[in-house]
Design a protein around this nucleic acid. Structure first.
Length: 492
RNA sequence: CGGGGUGUAGCGCAGUUGGUAGCGCACCUGGUUUGGGACCAGGUGGUCGCCCGUUCGAGUCGGGUCACCCCGACCA
């Protein structure tokens, strides 16, 4: 290397800084000039689009259909469900006027005071209220149920502190909303969608997650139960990556959504809602990336393979021809591939750049190698290089992509599992939780101990995990009897 | 809203006791290069966040103000 240049801060130095730099340098997104908002750049959006496509198919397989509801919600809707208002009131952007006019000096505009709205409109922080207001007109009979809709949209929550992808004032997401005739069916749906999220996280994003149910204090505003998938980032912090809520009849009652059951008796509809957001991009970045940049799972990488030619000008024609042949064969196998023969960037620059962007597989097609019938192939996850015969390279790459997908999942899982601890001593917990990691601890189930832990350690109860063999014990804080161990961690 | 910090070129920064604006990257031109972020030469680019004051003179000193960032409280 001619000159030592730091393109990224080292992960170990300052994780937040490293994350921010990575997001910007990998060309995923940048801070907008608009307060707390984010510009998602084409490369970042391509990854999001791929996520959307996969998730959308998964939803449809469960019978969900897409729809779209208004961005603006009359203020009165929000006050119909008491807990719901309580949860969102503090972070709502409000539309109060519908017109501007030129100012007195004619060099700018001001809000026209004459154009004040009679009822203010809220920019949706989530759409339960406006959707259930609509459901009222759609649901009359048990034959109308279940009603399963999803919308892809933006929402706005006026957060105090924002971070690219993880917490922005405006974010993109999907929110599913379902209405059911029975409690059991609604509960089952809420859990079913959590499974969909967990499946997506683990098998496409290659992000291992812990599924569980939230404590009462961490519940969604207006829910009876909130299910969650929790992922561990490389600094040991937890990231809530998706949630699914069993809403009971709260919204059915608040918006008077009643149907006649088979006995011709009126009943309130049972509800669920569930969502994942562009925060998943944050999870993807923070789970796999290394000091060279992003590491994308092949299942979601916009470009799975990049081919870079190296040679003198006179040799380029020959290299182009060979590359086009490989490109054609890879495309036939359904692999997305880019041949980068731009002559205004040097090969070394391209290597570093595609590594930064996380392209899973790189081929180097050199004039020397070509004579011997080989190409250099590098896998992004381990950075290992080898020379492989061009003959049959396509199938080799296909297998390699599968292998990378598996490998990064296993690597992330091994990291996570190595940082999950059972802990029964609060003093020890306080000391160790600073360094990150997930702690499985007995909890007496009271909000008081939960609050005390948060107060003293900044860690919160992430969930009561499913699928963990539970034995009764004593709460490490209060010493009272506890039924089960819960997952406690510091989080984003 | 509490505690800390920063505002100087597109980005990252330096600027001494006050003396009239500088470096690296990026960008543009030309040339040589091209197997791990090339090199040489030349060039473009600034109302020093804003206002007021002190001074012959302010990026620098004083007062005010605005914006942004970090740590808390809130959250997908």
């Amino acid at each position: 290397m001619a000159k030592e240049l730091e393109f990224l801060t080292k992960r170990s130095e300052d994780y937040s800084k490293w994350y921010n730099e990575l997001v910007v340098k990998a060309d995923l997104a940048e801070q907008s000039d608009v307060r707390g908002c984010m510009v998602i750049k084409p490369y970042g959006y391509a990854i999001w689009e791929k996520m959307q496509r996969v998730l959308d198919d998964m939803f449809k397989e469960t019978g969900v259909q897409n729809a779209y509801f208004p961005l603006l919600i009359p203020k009165s809707f929000l006050s119909k469900e008491a807990e719901h208002v309580e949860g969102f009131a503090k972070e709502c952007a409000v539309v109060t006027h519908y017109r501007l006019k030129t100012n007195e000096t004619h060099d700018g505009v001001v809000v026209d005071p004459a154009a004040r709205l009679e009822e203010e409109l809220i920019i949706r922080p989530t759409s339960e209220t406006i959707i259930w207001n609509t459901f009222k007109n759609w649901i009359h009979s048990y034959r109308d149920l279940p009603l399963l809709v999803n919308q892809w949209c933006n929402v706005m929550r006026w957060e105090m502190r924002t971070r690219l992808f993880l917490r922005t004032s405006e974010f993109l997401w999907q929110e599913g909303h379902t209405a059911h005739a029975t409690r059991e069916e609604a509960e089952a749906r809420a859990q079913q969608m959590l499974k969909v999220y967990a499946n997506f996280a683990e098998n496409y994003m290659a992000v291992p997650v812990i599924q569980g149910v939230k404590s009462e204090t961490e519940r969604f505003a207006g829910a009876l139960d909130t299910y969650t998938i929790e992922a561990m980032m490389q600094d040991g912090k937890a990231l809530q990556s998706g949630t699914s809520h069993f809403l009971g009849q709260n919204f059915g009652k608040a918006f008077d959504v009643q149907f006649l059951n088979k006995e011709n008796k009126p009943e309130y509809a049972w509800a669920t809602s569930w969502g994942v957001s562009t925060r998943l991009m944050g999870a993807l970045i923070m789970t796999h990336s290394d000091d060279n940049g992003l590491v994308l799972p092949p299942a979601l990488a916009p470009t799975q393979v990049v081919i870079i030619p190296i040679g003198k000008l006179a040799q380029m024609e020959q290299l182009d021809a060979k590359a086009e042949e490989i490109v054609k064969n890879l495309k036939a196998l359904g692999i997305s591939v880019k041949y980068d023969n731009a002559d205004n960037k040097r090969p070394g620059f391209k290597f570093a750049d595609y590594e930064l962007k996380g392209v899973p597989v790189r081929l180097v097609l050199g004039a020397r190698d070509l004579e011997q019938g080989v190409v250099e192939i590098m896998r992004r996850d381990t950075l290992e290089k080898e020379n492989v015969s061009i003959e049959g390279i396509e199938q080799y790459i296909k297998n390699l992509l599968d292998d990378i997908q598996q490998n990064i999942f296993q690597k992330a899982k091994a990291y996570r599992d190595a940082h999950i601890y059972e802990c029964d001593n609060y003093e020890e917990f306080k000391e160790r939780v600073k360094d990150g990691g997930f702690f499985l601890c007995h909890w007496d189930g009271t909000a008081e101990t939960e609050a005390q832990i948060k107060e003293e350690t900044q860690a919160t109860i992430r969930c009561v995990p499913f699928g963990v063999e539970q034995t009764p014990g004593t709460d490490m804080v209060s010493g009272k009897p506890a039924k089960a161990r819960v997952l406690i961690a510091r989080s984003y």
